[in-house]
Computed example of a mutant assay.
Amino acid sequence: MKLKHQQTSFGRHETFPLRVGWLPKSLMALRQDADVFNQHEQAMRTLGVGRNMVKAIQYWLRVCNLVEFDTKQNAAPACITALGDALLGERADPYLEDDATLWIIHWLIASNAEMATGFFWFFNRFAAPRFKDADALLAMKDFAATELHLTTRAETTLKSDISTLLRLYAAVPGRTDEHLDALLAPLGLVEADPDGGYRSPRTSRPFMPQLALDFALAQRFAAEPDLQALPVRSILYAEGAWAAPGAVFRLNEEGLMTQLERLIATRPDQYALRDTAGLHQLFWRDRERRPEPLAVLRDYYRRYFL
């Protein structure tokens, strides 16, 4: 599936990274009053944020597909999605206490090529293990121009995506807003380099929770009903508009294979690795039933939170 410029967007986060507490607090507010986002003044009071932050919160809720908003003039109440309930519901992780939940949130952002194109690009296409802000900006501009044909895209918009991403993923010593902005820093996917700039290498990541890859693969297989197998290479490296779990989770080949073997060991009736015509592939074994991403989440939180 090719990435098309009509289905991409940059800089819609109002320059605010997804902050600590925004998702849990928003879903709790929506459970009490589904109309809370229909009036900005009401949302500002309830969430304790400014007008632009309300827009940013709505954006992040949509990127993660946790809430559906009616954008019409006489808007209907917002609706928490089944994914929102499965991930941050009262029977899941409503207070964002488990690091595994952060890995899922990361996947939801970095795999959303349409609504978070800059984040999708960084984790799926930008391969530099060490870089500076200017390097990333130059590479993103080239991507926007050559692949998306967005030659008129404002540099300030692309720059805001780079800045927002780095604030979300990298804890920088001495930055006063670090405790608010760097929600996904605990994942260690992007780190400040002591010699200047940033690091984002592919590693084996032995402490990455199995849930992350389990959910990502379930979403990938569920998205194409006729898909029976994925080449391991396409799990490791992104193609077109499909996100690659190996790239999004910054796994090297050894790390990905270890994670896949662990997944197969726990789900031998569902997944299998096979060599077919010289191609190493991950097969979905159950032809009668497709993967259910929400069931993966519910099974995890039922075991760990109840």
Results as ranks from 00 to 15, higher is better:
286 D>T: 10
74 N>C: 05
144 A>F: 00
224 E>P: 02
283 F>K: 10
193 D>T: 12
20 V>C: 05
158 L>K: 03
235 I>S: 08
175 R>H: 12
41 E>H: 11
87 L>M: 09
140 M>K: 06
35 D>Y: 10
213 L>M: 12
182 A>V: 08
302 R>N: 12
207 F>E: 15
153 R>M: 15
283 F>T: 05
233 R>G: 05
81 T>Q: 11
113 A>I: 00
42 Q>F: 02
34 A>M: 05
68 E>I: 01
189 L>D: 04
14 E>R: 04
40 H>D: 15
300 Y>D: 00
169 Y>A: 03
280 H>F: 14
16 F>D: 01
80 I>K: 12
128 A>E: 15
82 A>P: 07
204 S>Y: 02
93 D>R: 04
250 R>T: 08
110 A>S: 14
272 A>Q: 15
4 K>A: 11
238 A>W: 02
177 D>T: 14
65 N>Y: 06
207 F>Q: 15
121 W>V: 04
205 R>P: 05
33 D>N: 15
223 A>F: 05
284 W>C: 04
306 L>N: 12
267 R>L: 14
253 E>P: 00
109 I>R: 03
123 F>K: 09
258 T>W: 08
147 E>C: 02
25 K>R: 15
119 F>R: 13
282 L>E: 02
87 L>V: 08
99 D>G: 03
118 G>I: 01
185 A>I: 12
53 M>I: 04
262 R>A: 14
263 L>D: 02
148 L>W: 07
124 N>W: 05
49 V>C: 09
